[in-house]
Design a protein around this nucleic acid. Structure first.
Length: 505
RNA sequence: GAGGCUGUAGCUCAGUCGGUAGAGCAUCGGACUUUUAAUCCGUUGGUCCUGGGUUCGAGCCCCAGCAGCCUCACCA
């Protein structure tokens, strides 16, 4: 080989030549892994009993005098988030699921053998620490380490220790990193868990039974949405994933379970947006001998309890709306809001159509109630800061709902809106099998099956003919509930692993 | 599905008029027994999303594609 060009002269050590690249960053960590093994340390660790949650340790530390040097001995375990070396003294910030605490490791204090392990520590490694709890000279609560247990080596470089992960794509695809480094991310998902617990607690306290319906169905009913299609091999039958919980829960009302709810995933083959993910979590609850008024009271109880456990303030700004959770929530009829906001006479189809036309909506060959519904969505919805119960809907857009006794064109339905977004939907359930069948048929006429909320379900109709008690039914979108209780702007911020296209190399 | 914006080192981001690819953090080497995103000195690291095109020359301009975000449509 002749003289290489000076500008591209290779370094003497090929590994050094790429030092700092992604591969070299991992190699540096693998070198430390090998050094640990050489020291007889298992870099992948073993069971460690008796580690105290860092939050609990911090609580104990608060009671200690700053100058005390006789603090209790504690054991903590967690991930190294920051590492500052000052010669033969090293400071770590250790994080577990409950909090963060500073660790001080001194060469003299832990001895030369353990110090060899300290030399092998990287950001992201998991360690256990035994030490005295106290305060550093600069006033930081600190565990002064006497013992160090190496628990797991991290071979990948963590994100920027100050900014964390910022790219929303990376945050979602690598949620584990987002949970470690993202500001408030872990807290938000803990809040989600607490909210779900609260929902179950409220329902259980009222005597509701939690049940599980089928997610694989022959036909998807109970909502207006396109389903995902799949296939069962052994039975050689086409199946769809459920789009709602409704029709099976109502069968259970027929079966005498009287108060049932399901909290589970539904799947809708629709577009994605900051408020839509193809799979999302739905609560549906049904109470025999109740009506939509019963469900309004239940909805309010669930939301107030969920807000309490989530730590949501009573009044806050979200998505440009001022939300006030002080019960009772406002109630307003559909027609009153329409009159107020759209400036038309809801009782007069011509007036409604004229208003709809002014907003550029299609009105020809459309059912008057559909025009009304379009007008409502175009004008009223975005103005509803809420929470507000919108009550009494035009009957033609509510095929599963009982009509008002004295006004058959009005359905006993409410939707709860917050910040212009639909959060809950409830009916006095239609239990007249003949009317239900008729509504299915008229809804289906002239509509593509995929577009209709009413899908003929003859087995469901037969169940109704056996007698379903008069009942109230409620649906709440749990993801959206979590969004507004945690102040999240996107549904992807409250779903751990939202849908993504595959990354192509 | 349509439109707009974005894509540069492991992470967070600059990159001027088209003229040899930059910083901070991280890494590696050195100093430091009270640090706080430690600091200081030195060091290293690039498929500029992918593929074409224009040009003497493209991170930058043009075309196509991929991915993300936002808006709209479907929907909750």
């Amino acid at each position: 080989m002749s003289h290489p060009p000076k500008t591209s002269a290779p370094a003497s050590n090929p590994a050094d030549a790429s030092r700092g690249s992604g591969a070299a960053l991992e190699k540096a960590r693998r070198d430390k892994l090998d050094r640990l093994k050489a020291l007889g340390i298992d870099p992948w660790g073993r069971r460690l009993d008796g580690a105290e949650p860092i939050a609990a340790v911090r609580a104990r530390g608060e009671a200690l005098a700053k100058e005390a040097d006789d603090g209790p001995t504690v054991r903590v375990a967690g991930r190294i988030m920051l590492l500052r070396s000052a010669g033969s003294l090293v400071f770590l910030d250790l994080v577990d699921r409950t909090g963060r605490i500073q660790i001080m490791l001194g060469k003299k204090q832990i001895g030369p053998e353990s110090w060899k392990i300290v030399d092998c520590l990287d950001l992201g490694d998991l360690v256990g620490i035994d030490g005295r709890l106290g305060w550093s000279k600069t006033g930081e609560m600190t565990v002064f380490a006497a013992g160090l247990a190496f628990l797991t080596k991290s071979l990948e470089t963590p994100p920027d220790k100050f900014h964390g992960l910022v790219d929303p794509d990376l945050k979602q695809r690598m949620r584990y990193l987002d949970l470690i480094h993202g500001e408030g991310v872990r807290e938000r998902f803990v809040a989600r868990s607490r909210i779900v617990e609260a929902v179950r607690r409220v329902l259980a306290a009222r005597g509701y039974l939690e049940v599980e319906g089928p997610t694989l169905q022959e036909s998807a009913g109970g909502a207006a949405a396109r389903p995902f299609k799949t296939h069962h091999n052994a039975l050689d039958m086409p199946l769809v994933l459920r789009i709602a919980l409704e029709l099976h829960l109502k069968r259970l009302l027929v079966g005498g379970l009287e108060k049932v709810f399901e909290l589970g995933r539904v799947y809708r083959n629709e577009g994605v947006s900051p408020r839509h993910n193809p799979e999302f979590t739905m609560l549906e609850a049904y109470e025999a001998y109740g009506d939509y008024g019963t469900m309004m009271e239940l909805t309010e109880a669930i939301i107030v309890e969920a807000a309490t456990v989530a730590g949501t303030p009573q009044r806050f700004e979200w998505m440009g709306h001022t939300v006030d959770l002080t019960p009772p929530f406002r109630r307003a009829t559909y027609d009153d809001l329409l009159r107020e906001v759209a400036g038309c006479d809801p009782a007069d189809p011509a007036s409604v159509a004229a208003a709809a036309a002014r907003h550029g909506l299609e009105t020809t060959d459309r059912h008057p109630d559909v025009v009304k519904s379009d007008l409502f969505e175009a004008t009223v919805e975005k103005t509803l800061s809420g929470p507000i119960f919108v009550i009494d809907y035009p009957a033609a857009v509510c095929p599963l709902t009982k009509r008002k006794a004295d006004a058959p064109h009005v359905a006993e339905r409410f939707e709860l809106y917050v910040a212009g977004m639909e959060l809950a939907n409830a009916y006095t359930e239609l239990n007249d099998p003949d009317l239900q069948e008729e509504l299915f048929r008229t809804q289906l006429a002239g509509l593509a099956e995929e577009e209709s909320m009413a899908r003929m379900d003859t087995d469901f109709l037969r169940a109704l003919r056996h007698g379903m008690p008069p009942a109230g039914g409620l649906g709440i979108g749990i993801d959206r509930l979590v969004m507004f209780l945690t102040g999240a702007a996107s549904i992807r911020d409250v779903i751990l692993f939202p849908i993504h296209r595959p990354h192509t190399p």
